[in-house]
Amino acid sequence: MIWEKFIGSEIGLSAWRRGAACRGGSVKTSSETNRHFPAQTKAQIGRVWARISAPDPNRPVLQAFQVKAPDRHEASVGRSGMSMPVPPKGIPPAFGCTIHEKETTMSHTDSTEFVLAGVVMKRLLCGQQTAGQFCLFENRSDGNTKTPIHVHAKDDETVYIIEGELKAVVDGQPQRLAAGESIFLPRGLAHQLMNTSGKPCRYILIGTPALFDRFLEEAGHERRPDEVVGPPTPAEIERLREAAPRFGITLLSDWPPAE
């Protein structure tokens, strides 16, 4: 099955091993992990995958793939590159995120939408649902968005483009990402994501470990019904600036740039 390949990737298996070691459990090989992986978790991940890869004639279909963990001091771009840590059974309450009118168990996905820096971010999984190992978002940019140049001290990010294109400025070097391409952004590396193409872009964002989901709740806002999302207001910019240091995020330049 494609998800057995997906969750058996080196990055996912590494995260599983770390979690098992912390819990005092045994560490299994990749083949053992695939054979004995809990059916409940397979079903949970499968439902998320079905939602983000449903057939759509207007966009490419996501493919399952594997990738080796890149050097933590370099960003890697390629036609394959997204990998998920494997969530263990059991959900400690310490990795809290707010899920309205839903049980916070592994049998449910989330669909709450937030707005940050003009980007709509749909939360698919938060840290409370993955024992803090990762959070998962489907993001949408209308074609005129920029994040501040920033550095994460406590978490890594992985981006996979579903449709459209995105420009990632990594350590001062611009890199164009088209549909089907991905990039790994390790902590400690300055980066910026922007879409100035004038066309919509949809992409998957994975934060490891789960930290960005809690940052988003404080730095952004939950999207209101019928809200038309535009450039961030001065109040939204100030809220982002205030929240960033609490989650190990450093903003490196004036943002948004002066006109």
Rank of each mutant, 00 (worst) to 15 (best):
F114G: 01
R239N: 14
Q129C: 00
H150K: 04
E181T: 11
K28Q: 07
R187Y: 01
A131H: 05
C201K: 02
I161E: 03
I11T: 08
T109H: 12
I237T: 12
V115T: 06
E10N: 08
R18Q: 11
G172L: 08
D71F: 14
G164Q: 06
R72Q: 10
I204K: 01
Y203R: 04
G25A: 08
R246C: 03
S31W: 09
G143Q: 09
I91G: 06
G127R: 02
R223N: 13
H73V: 00
T29G: 14
V67K: 05
E222M: 15
E236A: 07
G172M: 13
E217C: 03
D71H: 08
K199F: 08
E113Y: 04
G8I: 10
W49E: 10
K89Y: 07
Y160I: 05
G230K: 11
G172Y: 04
S111C: 05
M82Q: 07
S30M: 14
A243L: 05
A210Y: 01
G78W: 07
C135T: 03
N58F: 15
E10V: 04
E138K: 03
P186E: 02
F134N: 01
A219Q: 02
K5D: 14
N34E: 14
P200R: 04
L205V: 14
L13D: 07
R23M: 12
T109S: 09
H36S: 15
A20L: 03
I2D: 09
K28P: 06
R202M: 07
V170E: 03
G19E: 09
M121H: 03
I91K: 02
K5A: 10
E157F: 14
S30T: 13
H73P: 00
D156R: 00
M84C: 13
Q175M: 15
G164R: 09
I161V: 15
V27N: 05
G220A: 13
H221D: 10
P57V: 09
G198H: 04
G8V: 06
P186F: 12
M106H: 02
G78V: 07
S107N: 08
P88A: 11
V67F: 08
D213E: 04
E218L: 15
K89L: 13
F215Y: 15
K42A: 12
Q173M: 13
A190Q: 00
P93I: 01
P38H: 10
F37I: 15
E163N: 15
V61T: 11
R35I: 14
E236Q: 15
Q40A: 14
G198C: 10
H191A: 00
V151M: 01
P60Y: 05
M84W: 15
V115E: 05
A190P: 04
F37L: 15
F247A: 00
T33E: 11
M84R: 05
R239Y: 06
I91L: 10
